[in-house]
Amino acid sequence: MAAFNLTHFDPSTFILNGIPDLEAAHIWISIPFSMFFLITLLGNVTVLFAVSKEQILHKPMFLLLCMLALTDIGMSTCVVPKALCIFWFGFKGITVDGCLTQMFFLYAVAAMHSAVLVTMAFDRYVAICDPLRYATILTNARIAKLGLVCLIQAVLLILPVPLLLRRLPFCANRVILHTYCEHLAVVKMSCGDTTINRMYGLVIAFMIIGLDLTLIGLSYGLIIRAILRISSKKSHQKALNTCTAHICVMLMSYTPNLFSTLTHRYGQGISAHVHILLANLYLLVPPMLNPIIYGVKTKELQLCDKVGKYTCRM
């Protein structure tokens, strides 16, 4: 294609290649991409709608669930529309500023998503380990403040990423072997010294995956200790059920993220299209399944019943 004639590259533009070695299958790959995206939007918007309309759901746990839904929508929206433009229309060009903007919003939303999961783990810890003080420790106002802290932390943590990339010189070959502006994929195109960029990328990976997982693990360690002290089997089961949905969401969020990060950095023997498919599935599958899991596992949030009730009123 003319787009790949390196002599005609616009120096202010990158080319998103899509999924290498699978260009012929882009149309077929776009089918699950678009389906997952639509289900993600429908499920998470439904959660937001149900919580906003039902007064009984105006509680800390469900406010956190709304934050999770917003981050799920944000992560998918940062990636899928551009990916579909590549698959359907071959619109592979993206300006350098557009690329860095996409990168900033994607990683900032992902960092906030992780911070919300940590806050949800703390919510479950208080609910099980100190239930009598739950209403005084976790008020709606306090949850809103924690959400603001999560947002500020995510912005401050991710903002240096595009700023550090902006100072780098890029080579003539500006083809990004990805469907979106993934950090390492952009770093690899630079002809300059990328040591600081790579080191800061490791710092972010440690902060988002390592530190957040440690805090979640600590919360659940204390929760398990509290559950083991409960003598009543019924109370034992009830305490476990309150954590089931969060554990499922947490495993779905961190497992593919951790695997994708490790394979991208250390899996040189793995094909490029496998790396990229894994990176995309991390941004597509958990946001799609999260509202389904909470809708099934949380009795107060029966999505079908809530939506049906408000649909009948209209």
Results as ranks from 00 to 15, higher is better:
M112I: 09
M207T: 11
M189K: 14
M199Q: 11
C248Y: 07
L215W: 01
L278S: 14
A25W: 03
T298A: 14
S231D: 13
M35H: 00
I29Y: 00
A127V: 08
N5Q: 05
L106F: 15
L156N: 01
M252L: 15
S253K: 01
Y294L: 01
I19S: 02
A24W: 00
R313F: 01
Q268H: 07
T263D: 04
L218C: 11
Q153K: 09
F4H: 09
L163C: 11
L64K: 04
D21H: 09
D123K: 05
L303W: 05
M189D: 07
I270D: 04
N257A: 14
M1V: 00
G43D: 06
L222E: 12
H273E: 12
A83R: 06
E54D: 15
L240D: 02
A111F: 11
T101H: 10
G90C: 11
S52G: 08
S235A: 09
A121T: 13
C99T: 11
G147S: 07
V296Q: 10
V51A: 05
R133I: 13
P160V: 12
C99V: 10
I143G: 05
R225F: 08
V296S: 10
I276R: 00
V296E: 07
A69L: 06
G201A: 11
K309I: 02
K53M: 09
T244L: 12
A272F: 07
I15F: 06
P81I: 14
T263R: 00
T71V: 09
A110N: 01
R313K: 09
K82Y: 06
A272R: 05
L289M: 10
I39F: 12
D130T: 12
Y200L: 14
L202S: 13
F89C: 11
L157D: 03
L148R: 00
H273P: 05
R133W: 12
E300Y: 04
P287E: 04
I270H: 01
F105C: 10
I208G: 02
I209E: 09
G18E: 08
G221S: 09
H275L: 12
F259C: 15
I158E: 12
L42P: 03
A205M: 04
V149S: 11
H275S: 10
P160S: 10
C243Y: 04
Y134R: 15
A144E: 08
S34C: 13
T101F: 15
A185H: 07
P81A: 13
E23F: 01
D130G: 09
H273V: 06
S232K: 00
I143P: 04
S231K: 09
L303R: 05
A83F: 06
S34Y: 00
A185K: 11
H113N: 01
A2E: 02
P32C: 14
G269L: 12
L284W: 01
L301H: 06
T7F: 01
M288G: 04
T46C: 14
L277R: 00
